[in-house]
């Protein structure tokens, strides 16, 4: 090993130890007892309450709806902002501030946005849609700009050479490249948003998170177990379908 890699490992180990020093369980000896109740107790996580299935299903459906609408809204705005942010389409005067705006949006977490939107439009799924939509514009807009900036210009040159107008260059040379790549990142974002939408309800922004929050507050771990199973199933199914579609797209 070189001198530099020794340093690398040493600094890494030091940082980990320093960080772990404060990460100790706070419950002390009661910990084991609580963990038993949490996992294996009569109302524990691993004994799901199947009577809860119907409210869980409707909560999950709402989360799914929030993710679909939020992602769609974000996609529309991201397409517009991505064009303005793309250096090869836009001008530096527009592109640079738009990129800065997109990174600023990316830094604000969904939950924070949800809390802010709840103040604005009241609790419920609409606040969740706005929170997801707003947050996703940041990443989707950036990715859209990158797709546009990496466009293969050769087909575009060919349409210029046959005397095509700008709209034809876009429609026949650029769009066929942009559309599948854009849909692919949109679907990927949807996979992320379905996860986010399942906890938005914890702050009151609709979806299964509300049911989850109530169950946790009531220490009804059996209910929490049912909800977690539901979330895992929905997220896994969505991930699987979405990944298959994305593989076909590109």
């Amino acid at each position: 090993m070189t001198k530099r890699s020794w340093w690398f490992w040493l600094v890494g180990l030091g940082a980990t130890l320093w960080a772990a020093r404060d990460m100790v369980p706070s419950t002390g000896e009661k910990g084991e007892e609580m963990a038993n109740a949490l996992f294996w107790g009569e109302r524990g996580l691993f004994r799901p309450d199947w009577d809860l299935l119907s409210p869980v299903a409707s909560g999950l459906t709402e989360s799914l709806q929030i993710a679909i609408v939020g992602t769609t809204i974000a996609g529309l705005f991201a397409l517009l902002l991505g064009m303005v942010a793309a250096e090869n389409i836009s001008t530096p005067a527009l592109s640079i501030p738009t990129k800065a705006l997109l990174s600023a949006i990316r830094t604000l977490p969904e939950l924070l946005m949800a809390i802010i939107f709840i103040v604005g439009v009241g609790p419920g799924p609409f606040a969740g849609v706005l929170a997801l939509g707003f947050h996703s514009i940041g990443t989707l807009g950036k990715l859209t700009a990158e797709i546009l900036e990496s466009l293969n210009t050769k087909p575009m040159e060919a349409v210029v050479a046959v005397g095509g107008r700008r709209v034809s260059i876009f429609r026949y040379a650029a769009w066929p490249q942009v559309l599948p790549e854009f849909l692919s990142v949109l679907l990927y974002r949807f996979e992320i948003n379905i996860r986010a939408a399942s906890i938005l309800g914890m702050v009151g922004a609709g979806g299964i998170g509300k049911t989850l929050m109530f169950a946790i507050n009531a220490r009804s771990w059996d209910r929490v177990g049912t909800i977690l199973v539901g979330i895992v199933v929905v997220v896994a199914v969505v991930d699987n379908i979405s990944a298959r579609v994305r593989a076909k797209l590109v």
Partner: peptide
Amino acid sequence: FQDYNLQGRLSVLQNVLTGLLG
């Protein structure tokens, strides 16, 4: 063009019709 400059994602027919866009 040396590299054909076709739109690879469109059909062959669509690429030929592209010649009429002007």
